[in-house]
Computed example of a mutant assay.
Amino acid sequence: MDMTEGSPATESPGHDDRPVAVVLGGSRGLGLLIARELLARGHRVVVAARDGDELERATATLSDWGPVSTQRCDVRDRHEVGELVGRVEHTVGPIEVLVTVAGVIQAAPVESLVLHDFEDAMDTMAWGPIHAAMTVLPHMRRRGHGRIGTVTSIGGMVSPPHLLPYATAKFAAVGFSDGLAAALSGTGVTATTIVPGLMRTGGHEHARFGGDAPAEYAWFAPAASLPLVSVDADRAARRIVDAVLAGRPMVVLTPLAWLGIRVRGLAPGTTTRVLGLVGRLLPDAPGREGARTADGREAARRLGSSFVDRLTTLGERAARRNLE
């Protein structure tokens, strides 16, 4: 497995007594910001992601903040995760903090989804956190201390329309992380379930849009960019790191997420019916000849709407800052 290294990667464990943090999915977006926040708080950080080019850019961006090294790892593969944890434990130092952020988003009506969409979502956002936590857990339990954070979503508490694979995986991640927190009670190791709402990370550029891809982009990208709907990702990263280091069982990051969870708890049937009505307002599935999956950049180009471009201005700025 390839490895991209920053200068601290050659240090032996005894050369630096700063705590070691691993951020899986930390090469861009929210993961990059969490890595930066951990560096600012005195951690040595190992950033892991699938893409070597993204890791090189992350190293250049993060190196001014503290000792960072980057390694390629696909969280979908438990063997790669195991090798990563073993390498870090033996060549960097004991892992004190693990945060799993890696995720994929597919926005499409259910008629345009295929089983692979669910498999990719589950492998990345459900099995990924399980692979990571269960691999690092024996090391942390042996030492009697450790912090595990799993970035889930409001989509793991309330299933939004046109995001069914995403919600399916995030519901699984919430169940795993919340149950793990209870199971670890009294051990000195904690698990934090991180529940963000929409954040301005610029992640809409990497999202995948199916069905009528330009039309799906036209509602999703503004929602992930407008300040009254989405929140500043830098502030979110600070709150996430606060919660993980403090060992809090759960942190809900946005007022809309907080509201959605409580409404769902009080009136689950009504919530589902309302979301069904919202889904009927979203784009219909096109005929087979009109369906073509696209990432955010291609969908925006195909849409060609200056109005939507204006609505996503803050999201585009965030994408450039956060290497999306």
Rank of each mutant, 00 (worst) to 15 (best):
A318H: 00
A121F: 03
E37N: 04
G128C: 06
Q106S: 14
G260Q: 12
M157T: 06
P129Y: 03
L275I: 02
G26R: 04
A285M: 08
V22I: 15
D309P: 10
H79T: 07
L281I: 11
G42R: 08
G210H: 01
L163P: 04
T270Q: 10
G276V: 03
R288W: 03
L256E: 02
G186E: 04
G179Y: 07
P214F: 04
E89Q: 14
R78Q: 11
A132P: 10
R208W: 00
P222T: 06
T254N: 11
P129I: 08
T168Y: 06
L256T: 09
E111H: 01
D117E: 14
R310Y: 10
G93S: 03
L198A: 15
E298F: 00
R239P: 06
R273D: 02
G202I: 14
G29I: 11
W219V: 10
R143K: 05
T187D: 09
A9Y: 05
M122K: 00
G82T: 12
V195K: 06
P214M: 09
T193P: 05
Y217P: 07
G42E: 00
F307T: 14
W65M: 08
A218K: 09
T59F: 00
G146H: 11
A21L: 06
V68F: 00
D77S: 12
S185D: 04
R87A: 12
L226I: 13
G304F: 08
G247D: 07
G290K: 12
T124G: 00
E298G: 04
L303N: 08
G188P: 08
A246T: 06
H116R: 15
H145D: 04
